[in-house]
């Protein structure tokens, strides 16, 4: 085994579509399709793509909240898909998650202290008598007043609630934090505060991240590497700098072009026609070919796989024309 923290190999998650009075599964929606990547200890991998491309199902599968249809997942050396419930329970403290909506992810009937120390107690890491003390330290770590432990979630603003979610996530001192659109619902000024907090914690705790967002600006600021998803597949993966400045997949290029950037030329932009096709009925060949200006015959018949770009094995794109200078 290598020394990666998380290794995902040919992972697939299909959701059956049921029809008729007997709810027979007629076909599958391939939400996650043959996805492979790894995350090193302390590394931040960004995952970007449009809504419906399978970012969240991928995160949920890694967290074992959805059942994987195929493939392998390893956390350090443990095979997640064949691990016993007891093994998984021990592992879960190492893998934590922060969701998009801090209003939906905190139980309104629990105090902040109960919320952020629950994981520690479930995993038997602290005694109940130590709760208040530990909660105060955690609150301080995420930049909140340590005396707020006895309050309830409704008393906090969106940004503060996201800090509480982060405090809960880091309480068990995980090695991997999965952020699913964790800063997307926040205002710009608050978003910057939360990003700064995550960067600080990343350094202090040597946390690895799977950072999911539709906002390439946020992802490229935070992450070492970026993976771009389209219709359940990773279509390009590489260092943040390579993806932002030397994208090889036409979809990545279109995505970068569509971001309204301050100071950019307002007229010269590559427009992406149409919309993301339904995952129920993906196009044959390359899933992106109906929207791609550069599509050639082989794109319509042969699905491309991730291949190194310009012989750089760390930068891969699933495009037949990735090294084509005409692009």
């Amino acid at each position: 085994m290598n020394n990666a923290l998380l290794t995902v190999q040919s992972l697939a998650t299909y959701f059956p579509v049921k029809k008729g009075i007997f709810s027979r599964a007629t076909h599958d929606i391939r939400a996650v399709d043959q996805v492979s990547f790894s995350i090193e200890p302390g590394e931040a991998l960004g995952l970007v793509g449009e809504s419906g491309c399978g970012k969240s199902p991928l995160a949920r599968t890694i967290l074992m909240l959805e059942n994987a249809t195929q493939g392998n997942m390893f956390f350090e050396d443990t095979d997640l898909l064949s691990a016993s419930p007891a093994q998984l329970r021990r592992l879960r403290r190492n893998m934590q998650v922060v969701f998009q909506d801090p209003f939906a992810s905190l139980n309104p009937g629990m105090t902040i202290m109960e919320l952020i120390t629950e994981g520690l107690i479930v995993h038997g890491l602290i005694q109940r008598s130590k709760r208040a003390e530990v909660a105060a330290t955690l609150l301080q770590e995420v930049g909140l007043d340590p005396d707020m432990g006895n309050r309830f979630p409704h008393e906090f603003s969106g940004g503060q609630r996201q800090r509480i979610c982060i405090a809960r996530a880091i309480s068990t001192r995980p090695k991997l934090l999965i952020c699913d659109e964790a800063v997307s619902a926040l205002d710009v000024s608050v978003q910057a505060q939360i990003m700064n907090l995550l960067m600080k914690l990343r350094q202090e705790l040597n946390l690895a991240f799977l950072f999911i967002s539709h906002d390439l600006g946020v992802v490229s600021h935070f992450c070492d590497r970026i993976a771009v998803m389209y219709l359940g597949k990773i279509v390009e993966i590489g260092s943040a700098h390579e993806i932002m400045h030397n994208p090889r997949h036409p979809y990545t290029k279109a995505l970068l072009d569509a971001i309204p950037k301050v100071g950019s030329d307002k007229s010269e932009r590559l427009r992406l026609p149409g919309e993301i096709p339904s995952a129920k009925n993906p196009p044959p060949g390359c899933p992106f070919h109906p929207r791609c200006r550069f599509a050639i015959d082989s794109c319509r018949t042969t699905p491309p796989t991730l291949q190194p770009c310009e012989r750089n094995t760390k930068h891969q794109a699933a495009c037949h024309r990735r090294d084509d200078t005409l692009q």
């Binding site: 449009e50 809504s51 539709h214 279109a254 995505l255 072009d257 569509a258 971001i259 309204p260 932009r269 427009r271 992406l272 919309e275 993301i276």
Partner: peptide
């Protein structure tokens, strides 16, 4: 909306 749709 997604950025690509936003541009449209």
């Amino acid at each position: 909306l997604d950025v690509t749709v936003q541009a449209q």
